[in-house]
Design a protein around this nucleic acid. Structure first.
Length: 260
DNA sequence: CGATCTGTTAGTAG
DNA sequence: ACTACTAACAGATC
């Protein structure tokens, strides 16, 4: 569940469960998610502790020693804390064992997540060409960013170098609520539509965060629980349709989202 | 068996 | 330089 709201939730989860605890051991179960050597990870983590966290887009950073641990969750990554260090969730790739007997598991079913280390989040963001975090982008910046790009609006919203944090699900939600067809060219958007998109982006992301990014807890008016060909539009008489945009399955209500 | 899935990146082509 | 499209990564589900 790894778009911005999911990752923000994982940040809060890490803060609540694992901050300031001595890390006795970093146990690598599967090094294929590691962007650094297992020894490097161990060297910087063991006998240290997570002292602070930060998030940009879909990346979670945890300050440790003089470095920052970088967690990315791919499509299926997660964090799971337990008091009992002996229990190991399915698909655990790395375990952080704490002095008090608890442990934090980094899980990833499909191996699309990654664990890295960096001197500083800003350096990592530069190196990976990440745009500003979606919740930090004000309307003026949003307008400027869009004006600097061409192509389809959905593609731009999902491009992490444009704005960081929005993926397939939430770009669909923003476009649905803004009544904009995903294939609309950026140049064809008028000022009201840009303003609407920005407002919906902020509101949807904040709503999702306060609902633990759980689709079932989202308002009934949202598209998120109706992502199925033939489902009925929660706000009208339309029927949800699946189209393909940028190689991703994209759900729209053709009644609400007229093509320009 | 084939299609699908909340992501990213490398390669190719225009 | 920017944009569009594809494949690849890997595993589970329908």
């Amino acid at each position: 569940m790894p778009e911005l709201p999911d990752v923000e939730n994982k940040k809060q989860y890490l803060d609540a469960t694992s901050l300031h605890k001595d890390i006795r051991r970093a146990e690598v179960k599967d090094d294929s998610v590691l962007e650094v050597a297992p020894q490097t990870l161990k060297k910087h983590l063991e006998s240290q502790s997570f002292e602070d966290t930060a998030r940009t887009g879909k990346y979670l950073f945890a300050a440790v020693d003089a470095k920052w641990l970088v967690l990315h969750f791919g499509m299926t990554g997660g964090l799971s804390y337990a008091e009992d260090s002996g229990s190991i969730p399915d698909h655990t790739r790395v375990l952080f064992h704490f002095e008090d007997g608890g442990r934090l598991a980094y899980t990833c079913q499909r191996m699309l997540g990654s664990i890295d280390m960096t001197d500083h989040p800003e350096q990592f963001i530069d190196q990976h060409d990440l745009g500003d975090d979606a919740l930090q982008v004000n309307l003026d910046t949003f307008r400027d960013i869009l004006n600097s790009k061409r192509g389809m609006i959905k593609t731009a919203l999902m491009d992490q170098s444009t704005i960081a944090g929005i993926g397939n699900i939430y770009s669909d939600e923003m476009l649905y609520q803004s009544h904009i067809h995903p294939k609309t060219k950026i140049n064809d958007l008028d000022e009201d539509q840009v303003k609407g998109l920005h407002g919906h982006m902020q509101r949807i992301l904040n709503t999702a965060i306060s609902n633990q990014a759980d689709p079932e807890e989202m308002p009934d008016s949202y598209l998120i629980m109706h992502r199925q060909e033939g489902a009925s539009c929660p706000n009208g008489d339309g029927t949800v349709k699946r189209i393909e945009v940028s190689g991703r399955g994209c759900y729209i209500c053709p009644d609400c989202q007229q093509k320009q």
